[in-house]
Amino acid sequence: MALNSTLYNAIFKRTSTFVLLAMASTFFFERTFDLSAESIFRSVNQGKLYEDIKKEE
């Protein structure tokens, strides 16, 4: 409960802090999302990608 009210008063109450938090998390989210999408693609296509044939040489 205390945590919730702290969180609300610290961030969500003011639009400025809300937007700031959103922008900061976008920065991290972008990296994680791109990396996870890439890792899905890699795991699905293991052995077929250019990186795989480059390693053989």
Partner: peptide, 19 residues
């Protein structure tokens, strides 16, 4: 506060995704 936080969290996640 809990309910507000939940909704704001969802709205924030939407903002992040939209951004």
């Amino acid at each position: 506060d809990t309910r507000k936080n939940f909704t704001y969290l969802i709205a924030g996640a939407g903002t992040v995704g939209g951004a």
